[in-house]
Simulated scan of single mutants.
Amino acid sequence: MIKEWATVVSWKQGEALLSCDVKASCSSCASRAGCGSRILNKLGPQTSHTLSVACDTPLVAGQKVELGIAEGSLIGSALLVYMSPLVGLFIVSALFQAMFDTNLAAICGALLGGVGGFLIARGFSVKLSRRENWQPVILSVALPPDALRVETMTPADNS
């Protein structure tokens, strides 16, 4: 089980809207200059993701929850997203190269196969996202933000 903490945005009728912060690991390793993740993180301005998770326990906005997702579903979705365009690219490129015997045809086949593989992955992802074992679940719930209050006293307040 892969775990991550999220913040509750809202809770209505058994459905929690959660916000997960995107973590960039760029500050924690020494190879900052040649890191591909650092470059990709700079491209997208999105710093958080919002998702909806079923939850029977009433939650308060600002409350922290621990989410979990099965490793199998994460690996399966990564394989679907990365491998289907790649396989489509190679197969259609080889097919066009064999049929038309030109490099231009192979390039066009590669483009068509990559886009086709992406569309296939997109169609399958909609079907797979409906599976219950592919959904994130709430593993634990932290205290609401207003449940704990700490008062400090200065030495001048003791008199």
Rank of each mutant, 00 (worst) to 15 (best):
G14W: 05
A110T: 01
L86E: 04
P58W: 05
A78P: 01
V115Q: 03
E66Q: 12
G36A: 15
L18T: 02
C55V: 05
E15A: 15
I39F: 09
C26S: 08
V8A: 06
L111A: 15
A94E: 01
E71F: 03
L139W: 06
R122N: 09
S77W: 05
S52L: 08
G44F: 07
A24T: 15
E66K: 09
A33I: 13
M153C: 10
C108I: 15
L74F: 10
S125M: 02
K23L: 04
L143T: 15
G117A: 07
Y82E: 00
I69W: 04
T47Y: 00
L59F: 03
A106L: 13
L111F: 10
E4D: 09
I2E: 00
K23R: 15
S159V: 12
R149Q: 13
L143N: 15
T154I: 08
K42T: 00
A121E: 01
C29T: 12
L148Y: 10
N41H: 13
V87K: 03
S159Y: 10
D146I: 07
V9H: 02
A156D: 14
G44D: 14
A94F: 09
D101K: 13
G123F: 11
T7E: 13
V22Y: 02
V81N: 00
F100A: 11
S73H: 05
L80N: 03
S73Q: 03
S25D: 07
K23F: 03
A24K: 06
V81D: 00
F96K: 00
L139H: 12
E151A: 13
L18N: 02
V126Q: 13
I2C: 01
P155L: 06
V65L: 04
I75N: 10
V141Q: 04
W5L: 09
